[in-house]
Design a binder for these strands. Sequence first.
DNA 1: GTCTATAGTCTGATAGAC
DNA 2: GTCTATCAGACTATAGAC
Lengths: 206, 206
Amino acid sequence: MDTATTRSQLVAHAQRLIQQRGYNGFSYRDLAALVGIKTASIHYHFPQKEDLLLAAVHAYQQQWHAAIATIDPALPAGQRLRLYLDLHRRTFAGTDRVCLGGALAADLGSLPPLVRQAVQAFYRANEQWLADVIAEGARDGSLAPHARPRALARSLFAAVQGCLAASRLFGDGHRMDDILEGLAGAPEAPEGGDPEPAHTRRAVAA
Amino acid sequence: MDTATTRSQLVAHAQRLIQQRGYNGFSYRDLAALVGIKTASIHYHFPQKEDLLLAAVHAYQQQWHAAIATIDPALPAGQRLRLYLDLHRRTFAGTDRVCLGGALAADLGSLPPLVRQAVQAFYRANEQWLADVIAEGARDGSLAPHARPRALARSLFAAVQGCLAASRLFGDGHRMDDILEGLAGAPEAPEGGDPEPAHTRRAVAA
DNA sequence: GTCTATAGTCTGATAGAC
DNA sequence: GTCTATCAGACTATAGAC
């Protein structure tokens, strides 16, 4: 089955354009040119721009849900946490995009209320997944979190979103390593020119 | 001296509108209505929109530089770090704004190159300040960072930016406390319903 | 489902009077 | 410095043929 329907192409291109330029940074004209149809035809699939936006966010959330579901729940919590960060790094490193949720959250003041709710749902889902993993890691000892799971989950997700923006700003795909380094623990002499981030350690300071 | 010149009003309103709605979310029309002049008059002060943008970013960076300069360098590094986070919390809690740097970084793909450079300079200044404080704290023992100062500074600034976006998204002015909690250390039983964030502690896990 | 054609509005920007 | 008047182009959206 050829799943590259016009509708799915529109959603995919809309996602990409928002991630690159922000919510107000793209038009039906851009979209039509990319898909190879006229702007009027887009309205057949998405009568209002808000309809397209909602479809883009919901599809994005499902895509991330599927991606996170590939992280084996049988693995130690600490490793799952690193795989979560690595998933973000691999997805966005070298691209000119950020997370769709973060991109929309930044333009919040010009977002229709329903889109705002969809973005909230995306944030909640990520923060809850992280909080669950952190709590489990604290139980089984694979993590030693220095804050309550929910607080740490929120801080971590915020750091990931901010890191994606900074990575793109500086064209530096390695910035996620900074968070990984803080997660994994670090050299005892923190100001020296230690060139080896302790990626392989299991001790977690968070 | 009455410093509320038309030019300064334009810059201030432009800053606010970008922080609320993003780079592409406001127009000369909005701005003119707020200041009480016509759109054509704005072009006298800022011939192109990019000129206005650059003025807004540069003014913002100076404002933050002045605000951070109020943090007494004689204080312990750990306390200066908390004051830095508190400055952000106090500035944005209860508002519908995020940091101008973060707002522009999110719309990077539609930013003129010179504006992009100005945003980079803003990020670098903040990350450098944080790295210096963290390195000093590691030296004098007022902090025990679990990552190298530069990595920790970048993660922390990313977390602050992400936290501001999430705070506004959920209308929750207390989210900066999550970062403070991770910075200050936390209960040894992280999953319990401990209602007391350890705000007063000095031990820093970061 | 896609098209042409078009409406009505908003956009950044310019010319020239005052 | 601010105005009126205007521009050319972009925007979302609609009507109706195919």
